[in-house]
């Protein structure tokens, strides 16, 4: 288990390094960053000054090493727009996004797993068809449109919940639903497929031959095995959700990291963009790392050599 953890950790580090290089490279994709900061009408003197100030004239590798060194010690550079440390700006906004992500994945899991299990236990029954219908329809609804419709119905027409902002828990209800429903079909389908596969496995037949009661067969023997891939998927979805929160946050004017990303793009504030891409990637890498550890712990074939 220790060896597994170490190796998996090494992989995570490698992926993180590669991603950091890519997000760093983003800065240079569109040409000279000094021009970008100075603006289109700047003089060559201004540009030269900025180049010197930010060190854009150094070799790329040196600049990357510098930036990476900074990133490791929590210094992600200064925002071009606010002229404040990027780290400060980003951490201020991260709380809202992480809260939203956690709420949304919980929402998705609470909805999807019972539905998937119920559908698998009675394939082709009414509940199975209903679950399948919901997942097919759910997957086809664009989240930004869904968000707007929810605002129209629940905020404007019914006045039940606020439409924008992040002042109270009520503000999180609609965003949670919008962000969470999108992950629900995938998790439900995997739960259903996993349960179906496990329920036709030989060891379930053995359990039935032992005369165990149905509840024990379902929850002790089947679900335990079927849930293992669902954990991985949930981690992946959670990572996607944080990255995808930009759409939801912009609809509900939730001032989280996603909203910040949108603002930074329109402000051409590349260091903040860079940092956000890096941070969201790190979250994804962390979640999948933890999910793998959890899986290894849950599956004795991985845990016990």
């Amino acid at each position: 288990m220790l060896l597994f953890t170490l190796k998996r950790f090494g992989l995570a580090i490698c992926v993180a390094l590669t991603v950091s290089a890519i997000s760093f490279g983003l800065l240079y994709m569109a040409g000279d960053p000094a021009v970008a900061i100075a603006g289109e009408n700047a003089s060559s003197v201004d540009i030269a000054a900025i180049t010197a100030q930010y060190g854009f004239d150094r070799p790329l590798l040196v600049q990357y090493a510098d930036w990476l060194g900074g990133a490791l010690t929590g210094d992600l550079g200064r925002s071009w727009y606010f002229d404040l440390p990027v780290t400060q700006i980003v951490t201020d906004r991260l709380g809202v996004t992480v809260t939203l992500g956690a709420l949304a994945i919980s929402f998705a899991l609470i909805l999807a797993i019972p539905m998937g299990v119920a559908a698998a236990v009675r394939p082709n029954s009414l509940i199975d068809r209903a679950a399948l219908f919901l997942s097919v329809v759910g997957q086809a609804i664009p989240s930004f449109w869904f968000g707007l419709i929810l605002i129209v119905v629940f905020s404007i027409k019914l006045g039940l919940v606020p439409a924008s902002g992040s002042a109270s828990w009520k503000h999180f209800i609609l965003p949670t639903v919008v962000l969470g429903y999108y992950a629900t079909p995938a998790i439900m389908r995997l739960t259903r497929a996993g349960m179906l596969e496990v329920l036709s496995a030989d060891y379930i037949r053995t359990a039935r031959a032992k005369g165990l009661d149905t509840r024990k067969i379902l929850f002790k023997h089947a679900l335990r095995n079927a849930i293992i891939p669902v954990i991985s998927l949930a981690a992946v979805q959670m990572g996607f959700m944080l990255g995808g929160s930009i759409v939801v946050e912009s609809i509900f004017a939730l001032h989280g990291a996603g909203y910040l990303a949108w603002e930074s793009i329109s402000r051409n504030d590349l260091p903040v963009m860079q940092a956000l891409i890096l941070v969201f990637s790190m979250f994804y890498i962390l979640f999948t790392f933890l999910a793998d550890l959890l899986n290894a712990w849950m599956d004795p074939r991985l845990r016990v050599g």
Partner: peptide
């Protein structure tokens, strides 16, 4: 019928490799 299974009648299967739940001792 389920109450009889295991207690009064028991079964052995063809495929021993997959007949046991991998998650439990």
């Amino acid at each position: 019928h389920a109450k009889l299974r295991g207690r009064r009648m028991a079964m052995i299967f063809q495929e021993p490799m997959s007949a046991l739940n991998p998650c439990y001792t």
